[in-house]
Nucleic acid binder design. Structure first.
Lengths: 151, 151
DNA sequence: CTAACATTGTTCGCATTAGGACTAATTTGC
DNA sequence: GCAAATTAGTCCTAATGCGAACAATGTTAG
């Protein structure tokens, strides 16, 4: 029946991602942010701001979700919205001063936390893992793209 | 500043998982199920049922979430709850007849869908990916376990 | 130029999602 | 045996998360 040779691999992908997520997000939450909020603050750090579209692409957060997350960050005075001077449809999001301070504090702390788990991996190991993941991602992207084009 | 060599790898892990999730879940939703609901139906298929605890471990869904997901599946007559004869705290969840039929239909269709993306990978490639993922997962599990013990 | 088309962000409905408080039941330590 | 610590599920709150519908703006084909 289920002699699908790729099922164990998919299972391992889900478990691996979940292990990363659990390790990372527990720390993020202990710093008073949700994983999504951290993603946004970390992405906006050291930038002049960017549109919702770009922010969504970088953080993998859907636009519908992004509106709500930015709403809550804005209510905490951590980010600011401003109209784009170039495109009347577009909004620019950037860190407010309190967001800059939070970024400095939290991003550094999180790097230390992640280094505790991953510091033992050398450049060659990291490159090998990254290469394997990219290959697998492209396998999905390829079929997804093919179907999108074929519609 | 951010000369953390593992950041690109983590970025790729997130993108890879997201690509898989997007590809898989779009199909699942087209079949009328959410990803979580599919996970549960697929896990329960061809089994005599299992406890919430076991079901949660297999699907990586936390207990608080599981209650709600099972509630909705039960409302659709796809699964049934019954008290465990062995442990008075425990509930057994198993597929109802409609759930069995759904399982047959949907599980097979989803395998076909996944095979379209992954059918081109041979056993050696799959083993290599799986091995890489397991190594990375154990890196996170190791530190997580160590800290849990140290508390 | 202008009507069709596409894109940007918001809103809505519905379903997770994690985590913590809570109840009931079981296991453990002494 | 029995009080204390654990464990299994449920309920609650706050925050995602996705797809679809929407209004406002921009782009393009004729």
């Amino acid at each position: 029946m289920s002699r699908e040779p790729f099922l164990p691999m998919l299972r391992e992908l889900a478990r691996c991602y979940q292990a990363f997520e659990a390790y990372s997000s527990a720390h993020i939450r202990s710093l008073g942010l949700t994983p999504s909020q951290f993603d946004i603050v970390a992405t906006l750090g050291n930038t002049p701001g960017m549109s919702f579209k770009e922010l969504g692409e970088k953080t993998l957060i859907t636009k519908g979700t992004l509106t709500g997350v930015v709403d809550r960050l804005e209510a905490q005075k951590l980010v600011r919205r401003s109209a784009s001077p170039e495109d009347g449809r577009s909004m620019i999001v950037r860190l407010a001063p309190a967001g800059e301070r939070l970024y400095e504090r939290v991003f550094t702390a999180h790097l230390v936390h992640m280094r505790q788990a991953l510091g033992g991996l050398d450049a060659a190991q990291l490159a090998q893992i990254e290469s394997t993941l990219r290959g697998l991602r492209e396998t999905f992207a390829a079929i997804g793209g093919r179907k999108a084009v074929a519609k």
